[in-house]
């Protein structure tokens, strides 16, 4: 259970997050959408303490987030994959595993996770510099899920992938959340991804949460319709006029 209260962050005199209140329940999958540059990635960084918020609180299981304990059961896919370029693909995926098991077992698990993101054993010994952007992204995804984390953040998991691959990754993320009961926050620009991955969807606009509701009501929400540049399908509860 992650709760954000009044999270605020500006760079210089440019406000990016302006009082974010948001919570994700245990085992829930939240999708965060919003225009490019509205601060979605910054939001994740602030939750993790990778960027220091100017104000506000990040609570995890009711107490201020303890980074050490939190990271121990956490996985993250960075927007730019952030693979370690001095390690091979499998060593990247198995990074956490290798801290507590021998290389043979860690490699076997890494190969299995690579297979789940649609990458064969032939990429295992490549260096990250030899991968295409979409492949690097999928290796990053395999690294994020390698140790079966309880909380996972995905920053644009399907950007840069072909539509068929993208749907497969969506299904994979949904499957992980359902199977393992993991709590997930996924940033995406893709409404179809949202529908597959998310239980809830939140829209970030002008530094605030402009909409927060279940995915099944997505098409009726006026704030989302405005974001997508179309009129709502059926008048939502607050779209009477």
């Amino acid at each position: 259970m992650i709760t954000l209260r009044g999270l605020t962050k500006s760079f210089g005199d440019k406000p990016v997050l302006d009082g974010i209140d948001l919570s994700v329940a245990q085992g829930e999958s939240l999708c965060v959408i919003g225009q490019s540059g509205t601060g979605k990635s910054v939001l994740l960084r602030c939750i993790l303490g990778l960027a220091a918020p100017d104000a506000g609180q990040v609570l995890w299981q009711g107490a201020p987030l303890d980074r050490r304990r939190f990271m121990a059961q956490f996985g993250m896919l960075f927007q730019g994959a952030a693979l370690f370029d001095s390690l091979t693909v499998w060593q990247n995926v198995a990074f956490r595993l290798r801290q507590r098991m021998d290389d043979r077992r860690a490699r076997a698990i890494a190969l299995d996770k690579l297979a789940r993101v649609g990458l064969g054993p032939e990429v295992a010994d490549l260096m990250p510099a030899e991968l295409s952007g979409g492949m690097a992204k999928r290796v990053g995804l395999a690294r994020a899920i390698a140790d079966d984390p309880a909380v996972i953040f995905f920053d644009e998991p399907t950007t840069g992938l072909d539509p068929i691959r993208a749907r497969a990754i969506d299904a994979l993320i949904r499957g992980i959340v359902t199977e393992t009961g993991a709590t997930a926050i996924t940033i995406t620009h893709d409404m179809d991804s949202c529908r597959i991955i998310g239980d809830r969807v939140a829209l970030l606009a002008q530094g605030r949460i402009a909409h927060d509701g279940p995915v099944r009501d997505m098409d009726r929400a006026p704030a989302l319709a405005a974001f997508l540049g179309r009129v709502p399908l059926h008048g939502g509860p607050d779209a009477a006029s």
Binding site: L48, R67, R68, G75, M76, A82, F95, R96, R143
Partner: peptide, 13 residues
């Protein structure tokens, strides 16, 4: 700048 150091942190390193 490529967030590899942040990735280390998220991997408890």
């Amino acid at each position: 700048v490529t967030e590899q150091i942040d990735a280390l942190v998220t991997l408890s390193a």
